[in-house]
Simulated scan of single mutants.
Amino acid sequence: MAPLTFGALVYNYQAIDVMGPTDLLNSSSRELLNALKVYAPIDESTLSRAPDFVFHHIGLTNEPVALLSSHVTIVPTTTVDECPELDFLLLGGPNPEHFQLHPKYAEFIRRHVAAGKPLFTTCTGAFVAALAGVLDGKNATINHIEFEWIKKRFPQVKWTLEKQWVVDGNLWTGSGAVAGMDMMAHWIKENFGLDVLTAGALGLDFEPRDVDGLLTVLLKRYNAIGKQISTHVYKYYNEY
């Protein structure tokens, strides 16, 4: 399987909106799971279905960009003019009050969606997608704190509060930052299997919630695998 290319536009988003989902993807990759075999029993069939990823952080230029939170500055790996072909695009959430979408970014988003490729948004990343016009007439959600505000700003979008994330065709919109990680966990499970997600999430000690915000996704598998790992680690360190 060829590596899947994930891109994230670089602007002043909240750090976890992009770093959380991409870290989960990376932890579920074949490369990371293969490394984790030292510490945990990971079946070969799980490894065979785990994907490989290439990540691109896409700026207007290659100049560093200060993010919205955590005093993090990110250096783009490519630009909108030079970006390789993407399979998936992720939009983190900026502060809507002070954000203006650059026309090059808007066109980049529209072109990606028009090609039928999946677009993921986390938190107010849905605001960015709405500014680009790709959510018009679509079902979507956003950080629930901004719900009433976003309904008035973009009445042409079918906003909902009922779920932690919403899928409408190739558009995946998540609520708050951690709901974006939950959404990505669901995508991993649906595309590569629950065992791939479990192994990847286990490396982060992450228990994803379901679309209703409930902790029902991995709990039983964690309990079973935890016993296997304890035995595996004990044997490994006693042998060496």
Score class of each variant (00 low, 15 high):
3 P>G: 10
3 P>T: 07
9 L>K: 08
10 V>F: 01
14 Q>W: 07
15 A>P: 05
15 A>D: 12
18 V>G: 01
18 V>Y: 08
19 M>S: 15
25 L>H: 02
26 N>H: 15
28 S>P: 04
29 S>W: 04
29 S>Q: 09
29 S>D: 07
30 R>G: 06
30 R>D: 09
32 L>H: 15
34 N>A: 12
35 A>Y: 15
35 A>V: 15
36 L>N: 14
40 A>Q: 14
44 E>L: 09
46 T>S: 01
46 T>F: 03
48 S>R: 08
48 S>E: 10
49 R>T: 07
50 A>M: 04
52 D>P: 11
53 F>G: 00
53 F>L: 02
54 V>G: 09
54 V>C: 11
59 G>H: 00
60 L>E: 06
61 T>D: 08
61 T>G: 09
63 E>M: 08
63 E>G: 06
64 P>G: 01
65 V>Y: 01
65 V>D: 04
66 A>M: 11
68 L>Q: 13
70 S>W: 08
71 H>C: 10
73 T>A: 09
74 I>Q: 12
76 P>W: 01
78 T>V: 06
79 T>E: 04
82 E>M: 09
86 L>Y: 06
88 F>G: 02
90 L>W: 04
92 G>N: 02
92 G>A: 00
102 H>N: 12
103 P>C: 01
104 K>Y: 07
104 K>A: 10
107 E>R: 10
108 F>H: 01
109 I>Y: 05
110 R>Q: 13
111 R>F: 05
114 A>W: 03
115 A>H: 07
115 A>Y: 07
116 G>C: 01
122 T>Q: 05
124 T>L: 00
124 T>P: 03
127 F>N: 10
127 F>G: 01
128 V>L: 04
128 V>T: 08
129 A>H: 00
131 L>A: 09
136 D>F: 03
141 T>D: 02
143 N>R: 10
145 I>Y: 14
146 E>A: 13
148 E>T: 12
152 K>M: 08
154 F>A: 00
155 P>K: 00
156 Q>F: 03
157 V>D: 05
158 K>H: 13
158 K>W: 11
161 L>S: 14
166 V>E: 04
167 V>D: 04
169 G>D: 05
176 G>D: 10
176 G>K: 07
179 A>W: 00
179 A>Q: 03
179 A>H: 05
182 D>L: 02
182 D>V: 02
187 W>G: 09
187 W>A: 09
191 N>P: 10
193 G>F: 07
196 V>F: 01
197 L>D: 03
197 L>C: 03
203 G>T: 08
206 F>H: 04
209 R>G: 08
210 D>G: 04
212 D>T: 12
215 L>Y: 14
216 T>K: 10
216 T>R: 11
217 V>L: 05
218 L>T: 07
221 R>Y: 14
225 I>V: 15
227 K>W: 11
228 Q>M: 11
229 I>P: 00
230 S>R: 14
233 V>L: 12
233 V>M: 15
238 N>G: 12
239 E>D: 06
